[in-house]
């Protein structure tokens, strides 16, 4: 059960210098046709090397907006996002994104070409090297047989695997996943979560993962940022390393799940931003 242990213990001193991603005081706003909507308000968090950091919250808590801001698709109106000490200003291949939607793969490229595309586009690898890397990553997500197939021939789960392989091949500083398994059926989702954990166990990449499912957060994550909605504000940060699917339903797991549920649920009822501290 505890195959996924935390790589290093953390002490609370001098952490900010070693953090990979530093989000400080970030307020995000976006305009609809009539309103200026504040998605998040002064959110702070830090992500460290090899962490599986989960942004968890109900819809409207700005977790996806936060991820997009880290991706560079959205500029904060207040605060700053730093990756390796550099402020994020625009999208770039050092932060590869895996989206929820299945149409994230260009349909005119085969699986292999899709994985090679960002490698070539960013000039990170030459054609032969890119091909080797692509085939290696495709093998890691168990799609070797489908390397020369176009995405429309694949199932939803397979498309998400390609997207993960594509992101992996780039060896980004941080992997951004925006509810990548939300559009999958429950059985496939579970399998994909296990595969992601297995991949992480092999490669020890850093991932920032957005979800609205408490169970998924606990299984996939090593640390969870709980956000409250309208606008998104930090509610808690929780360690949850070492839970896999075998732990689901266990007493400890349930207690933690209930604790998070209470936080989110209390928020929902009161709508005032002061739920009971658990």
């Amino acid at each position: 059960m505890n195959a996924l242990t935390y790589p290093h213990s953390i002490d609370s001193d001098g952490l900010s210098e070693r953090s990979l991603l530093d989000v400080s005081g970030v307020t995000l706003q976006y305009k609809t046709r009539r309103h200026l909507v504040t998605a998040t308000y002064r959110v702070d968090f830090q992500v460290f090397q090899a962490e599986r950091y989960v942004l968890l919250g109900p819809s409207g808590c700005g977790k996806s907006s936060l991820l997009k801001a880290v991706g560079g698709f959205l500029q904060p109106v207040e605060g700053a996002i730093r990756l390796n000490g550099h402020t994020v200003t625009r999208p770039g291949p050092d932060r590869m994104m895996v989206f929820q939607e299945f149409d994230q793969l260009p349909p005119w490229k085969t699986v292999k070409e899709n994985v090679m595309f960002p490698l070539l586009a960013s000039g990170k690898a030459r054609r032969r090297e890119a091909e080797e890397k692509a085939l290696d990553c495709i093998a890691r997500v168990n799609l070797t047989k489908f390397a020369d197939v176009h995405p429309h021939m694949l199932s939803g789960g397979m498309k998400q695997r390609v997207a993960i392989a594509r992101a992996m091949a780039m060896e980004p500083d941080i992997l951004l996943m925006d509810e990548p398994f939300a559009a999958l059926d429950a059985l496939t989702r579970r399998k994909m979560q296990e595969e992601l954990l297995q991949l992480w166990d092999d490669l020890r990449f850093t991932v920032l993962f957005v979800t609205h499912s408490i169970e998924e957060a606990l299984v996939v994550g090593s640390r969870i940022l709980v956000l409250s909605p309208h606008p998104g504000q930090v509610k808690a940060e929780i360690n949850c390393d070492g839970y896999d699917h075998g732990a689901v339903g266990g007493a400890e797991f349930q207690a933690l799940a209930n604790r998070i549920h209470t936080m989110l649920f209390a928020e929902d009822v009161e709508g005032s931003g002061k739920g009971p501290s658990a």
């Binding site: 991706g71 698709f73 999208p91 770039g92 291949p93 932060r95 590869m96 994104m97 989206f99 939607e101 149409d103 994230q104 793969l105 260009p106 349909p107 005119w108 595309f117 960002p118 586009a121 960013s122």
Partner: peptide, 26 residues
């Protein structure tokens, strides 16, 4: 689709390459 656009920008494609390698085929 917006997702495909974001994926393209994620790769760091410049304006012209973005049009040629992403928008035109899409």
């Amino acid at each position: 689709s917006e997702t495909l656009r974001m994926a393209g920008r994620n790769y760091g494609l410049g304006n012209l390459r973005y049009v040629v390698t992403l928008l035109i085929p899409a």
